[in-house]
Amino acid sequence: MAHYQRVGAVPPKRHTQHRDPDGALYSEELMGEEGFSSDSSLLYHRHIPSAIRSARTWDLPDQTTRPNHPLVPLHLRLHTLFEGDAWRDVDAVTGRRLVLANADVRISYAAVGATSPLYRNAVGDECVYVEDGAGRVETVFGDLEVGRGDYVVVPRATTHRWVPSGDGPLRLYAVEATSHIAPPKRYLSKYGQFLEHAPYCERDLRLPTPPRVVEDTDVEVYLKHRGHGPGGLAGTIHVVPHHPFDVVGWDGCLYPYAFNVDDFEPITGRVHQPPPVHQVFEGSNFVICNFVPRKVDYHPLAVPVPYYHSNVDSDEVMFYVGGDYEARKGTGIGIGSISLHPGGHAHGPQPGAVEASLGAERFDELAVMVDTFRPLELGEAALASDDGAYALSWDKNS
C-alpha cells in the first residue's frame, strides 16, 4: 500500500537519534517487504522489539486437508460451524476453522465473542472480511474500528489482536496468503496511485488511529510461521518482557487498513461483464472479488445471470454474505454459504435461473469471491459443513 503516512513522534531524518523526554533513545524498527526492496515503515518503540523472555509451542488449529476427490462442486454452510452460544468463548486467532487451502492461500472462518491473544502471522498478509458484528482490531500501528462489510488487510508480521464488541458474534472470513495482498496492479499508476477507472480509491481506505502506548510485562504473542506441520506451518508463543504496543510514532507505506465493501463502485455494461471487473485485491496465484448490489446488463436481449463457464485455470470460491443471489436459487445456498466450483467443472446458473432473470434491471446481491490458480483442498471445516447434495443440483431429475 504505497501511500506515505506519518503518525505520532518521528525524527526529522530516518536512522537518526530519537529520544524520549527523559533523554532515553527510542528503538527504531524497519518493517519492510521483499528484502529492503519494497514498501516499508519505520516504527519507534519505547523498548527493544527483539526481546524475548521465553518461547513454547503453540498447537495451531487443525490445518490438515484432503483433496477434493472425487472432484465435485460443493455447498458449505459455514454458520453450522458455530451454532448456539458456542461463539461466545471463541476468539479470532485460536478459534479459526480451516475451510479450504492450497500452497498459496488458506481460507478460514470463525464466529467469535472473546478477545484474541496478540497475534503475528509471519507466513503472509491476511485479508479478513467481516461478515457480521463489530469490533476493534488493535495493532502495533494503532486501532481500526471494524464492522459488517469491512475488509481488514493486515501486513505480514504485524502484531495485532481482535476485540469483539456488541451482543452478537463477530463473524470473520479470513483469507491468509503466503504472499502479500494488495489492490490489483491495473488499478494503480506506476507510482502506486489509484487510477480514474479503479472502482475504489485512497479516500475509501480507513487507516489506524494513532498508536497508544501500553505498559505491561511478560506478554504472550502467538506467532504463526513456516514449519513442518500440516500445510507447512508451525506455531510458537513468545513471552516478551514489554507489551508490543509501545510505539510512539511511525511513518512509511506499509500498515494495516480497512475498506468497506459498500465503497466499491461496480462496473457494469450492456451485456454481462466477466468476473475481473469485480476484483478488489490480489495475491500470488489468487484474486479476491466482490459482487455488490448493482444495475445489471441493459442490452435489450441481455441475459443478466452468468453464462455457463469452465474454470480451466482456477478454483472459484463464492462466499454469500447478503441479498438474494439470482443464479443459485433453489440450491439451499443462503447467507453464510460457500460454493466451491473446482477447475475442470463447467458451472453456471441453476435450472430456470436464466429465464427468471430476463428483464431484471438490478441485482441485490453481496458475495466475496476468491479465485485460486492452484487446486484447493478441503479443511476440516469444509468436511463438517458440506451439504452433500449441491453437486447434483443442475440435474433436473435428481
Rank of each mutant, 00 (worst) to 15 (best):
M1L: 15
R6G: 12
T16C: 01
E29H: 07
S38C: 11
L43F: 10
S50T: 15
H75M: 06
R77T: 12
R77G: 00
T80E: 15
F82N: 10
E83Y: 01
W87R: 09
T94H: 09
L98I: 12
V99N: 08
A101W: 01
A103V: 07
D104G: 05
S116G: 13
G124A: 05
V130S: 04
V130L: 11
T139F: 07
G142S: 13
G149R: 07
P155Y: 08
T158H: 04
P169M: 07
Y173H: 14
Y187N: 09
A198M: 07
P208C: 02
T209V: 01
H228T: 13
P230C: 13
G232F: 02
A234N: 06
T236W: 04
F245M: 11
F245S: 05
V247C: 08
R270K: 12
R270H: 03
V277K: 06
G283S: 03
P300E: 11
P306E: 07
E316Y: 03
V317L: 15
G322K: 02
D324G: 03
G348K: 00
S357E: 00
G359L: 13
A367S: 09
V368L: 11
M369W: 04
T372Y: 05
F373M: 08
P375T: 01
P375D: 04
P375M: 01
A382W: 01
A391L: 03
L392K: 08
S393P: 03
S393N: 09
W394F: 03
